[in-house]
Write a protein that binds this DNA or RNA. Structure first.
Length: 571
RNA sequence: GGGCGCGUGGCCUAGUCAGGAUAUGGCACUUGCCUCCUAAGCAAGUGGUCAAGGGUUCGAAUCCCUUCGCGCCCGCCA
């Protein structure tokens, strides 16, 4: 266990013992102490009433009762607070020692958790290029998966491919029956096939009579006509590969694709339907079956959830139910990354699971939409920023910046750094805010390379690498007592906080807190860099500072890596 | 009509779950700092009734209630 967590546990235990002695029963919650007042604090105000004493008096009393031991150096009081000061030398020695020995696994708990988590993310319909609005999903999903992995979970990622819906049928029908006169924007299958999709949609609006052809094809697909299944799958697969190529530029890949058609073909959906029909909540209307879910907290105009159509075929969420059963058989915990528009459908799915007697439920991380200043993104209306275009622009801007600063580098090296910096800036910009907050996409924010941004953090890392590469050999048997300035102490504490931040993000399935932490860590490092010379220091002070630089480097690198952002050694 | 989420300086944002010591950072703006380990940096400054009102509490950005604003949803679509 890391020093901070251990110290916290020790202090909580000591406080609980003191509470028992005083015959008081209040929950022991520790706060972070303000600068100069120690490390952790316990507010005594709640005790005031039952003990009939002023909080300051109680704090003083508690401070004298608790003897400093373990990681705690001193216990004192200030106003109504008991303040705990940790032994800095010990904290520093352990923290730096852990970072230097564990390297890229620094932050990971001592033992793997032995818990399998399946993170499903992206899962966009393969009907065209992915745009910035949709890209929030893979960025959050991939980041969460990386955080969970670094926090010791056994993680796999998965993309659920919709290949049985109307949309893919319309696209496939277009590819088979239509000619598109224009060249695609890019030489990629997602850009190529979306033209057929758009043309097909337009044609169907103009000639509603041809809708029957779509209906026929949909019927054939749902009843397993080999040729229709093959054609649809082929078109979807091409577009899917093109989408994954774009996501690959963002360092995003998934371990497995699961095709929705599988659950129709293997008849597991039929099994779900049979189970649901047996429920007392199930009713029938014109041959279609639904569950009445009002008693499951579903509210609104409509509390019926239809799980079959009149012709007996399944609907999307029914197939998703079969998919979840499949997932539950393969994992301990299923996490889904979904837009907030899926909330009701997931409530229905969850209720259906309960009705089926399934205890497991998916955990869902919802995110709000990314819109443009002119409104919601829509491929149909042309109000859209394609992810490929944003990626190109970010890399190009980063290239201009690199060229300004580093004329000494080769062209290839400049291009490589520009790629890492530009892409990192985009990922950071999306993942730095809480998922449930709406984002209005602005080019100037997305391409920000200063302040609260990935390049700021990457830059701190590059500075650390630069010092280490110039340092030559140094004695790694350092003495942490030489880290005496406030800048050094704050930096050590920041590095020490990494494991608990990581654990918090992993256990609470949130990504932005790590982004915020990394920015803070980089700021601490930059201040240290400005005020505390390392290479020019001498003897043991130089050793200790080099150890601090290397530990900073690992904390920065591991933070960035968990955010899916590469850490260049120079920039 | 109902459900869910969001509302923090001109703009973006942390803190809200587990209420506590002067509300976190960034952008922009003003002013300094490259004969010194990479200035994508550092330092200083201007700027806030934490949407509004009420309540609970010794103490509220945080908990409860009401109202307002914005977003999403309420299909035998996916």
């Amino acid at each position: 266990m890391d020093v901070y967590s251990r110290a916290r546990e020790e202090i909580e235990a000591a406080l609980k013992a003191a509470m028992a002695e005083l015959k008081q029963d209040v929950p022991v919650v520790l706060d972070k102490a303000p600068a100069g007042m120690g490390d952790l604090a316990f507010p005594c105000f709640p005790l005031s009433k039952t003990m009939k004493k002023a909080p300051a008096v109680i704090a003083k009393e508690l401070a004298s009762m608790i003897r400093p031991r373990g990681a705690v150096e001193k216990v004192d009081s200030n106003g109504g607070y008991v303040n705990f000061h940790l032994k800095f030398a010990e904290l520093a020695h352990e923290t730096l020692g852990a970072a230097l020995s564990q390297k890229q696994t620094y932050g990971r708990p001592d033992r793997p958790k032995g818990v399998k988590i399946l993170v499903e993310h992206t899962s966009v319909n393969p009907t065209g290029p992915i745009h910035v609005g949709r890209a929030r999903n893979p960025m959050i999903g991939d980041t969460l998966a990386r955080i969970l992995r670094q926090a010791g979970y056994d993680v796999s990622t998965e993309y659920y491919v919709n290949d049985v819906g109307r949309q893919v049928v319309v696209m496939t029908w277009g590819v088979k029956n239509l000619k598109v006169g224009v060249e695609p924007e890019r030489d990629k299958d997602d850009y190529r096939y979306v033209l057929y999709y758009q043309k097909a949609n337009k044609l169907l609006e103009e000639e509603p009579g041809r809708e029957k052809e779509i209906g026929d094809m949909l019927y054939k697909l749902e009843h397993g006509d080999p040729e229709t299944v093959r054609a649809t799958h082929e078109v979807c697969d091409s577009v899917l590969k093109a989408i994954m190529q774009t996501l690959g530029r963002l360092n995003i890949a998934v371990d497995r694709f699961t095709w929705e058609s599988k659950f129709v073909e293997d008849r597991s959906v039929d099994g779900i339907i049979e189970r649901l029909k047996k429920s007392e909540h199930c009713h029938e209307q014109d041959g279609a079956y639904y569950l009445e879910l009002e008693s499951f907290g579903i509210a609104g105009r409509e509390t019926k959830w239809f799980f079959t159509r009149s012709d007996g075929t399944s609907v999307y969420t029914t197939r998703d139910l079969a998919y979840h059963m499949d997932k539950f058989a393969r994992t301990d915990i299923a996490v889904n990354i979904l837009g907030e528009d899926h909330k009701l459908a997931m409530q229905e799915l969850s209720a259906a699971l309960t009705i089926m007697g399934v205890q497991k439920k998916p955990e869902i991380l919802y995110y709000a939409f990314v819109s443009l200043p002119e409104g919601r993104m829509s491929t149909r209306k042309g109000v859209v920023v394609n992810l490929d275009d944003l990626l190109d622009e970010a890399v190009e801007r980063a290239y201009e910046e690199v060229r300004k600063r580093r004329e000494d580098l080769s062209e290839d090296r400049m291009r490589e750094i520009a790629r890492i910096v530009g892409i990192g800036a985009l990922r950071y910009n999306i993942v730095r805010v809480q998922a449930e907050k709406q984002i209005v996409f602005k080019w100037e924010d997305a391409l920000n390379f200063e302040g609260s941004s990935a390049p700021f953090i990457q830059y701190a890392h590059a500075r650390a690498c630069s010092i280490l590469s110039k340092a030559g050999d140094w004695n790694r048997d350092f003495d942490a007592a030489h880290l005496a300035t406030d800048h050094e102490k704050e930096l050590v504490k920041s590095i020490a906080g990494f494991p608990s931040v990581l654990a918090d993000c992993a256990d609470n399935r949130r990504t932005h807190a790590l982004a915020v932490y990394a920015q803070d860590l980089a700021a601490q490092f930059n201040q240290f860099y400005r005020f505390v010379p390392v290479l020019k220091a001498e003897g043991s002070a130089r050793n200790a500072r080099l150890a601090l630089v290397e530990a900073s480097m690992w904390a920065l690198k591991n933070s960035l890596n968990s955010l899916g952002i590469e850490a260049p050694e120079e920039m």
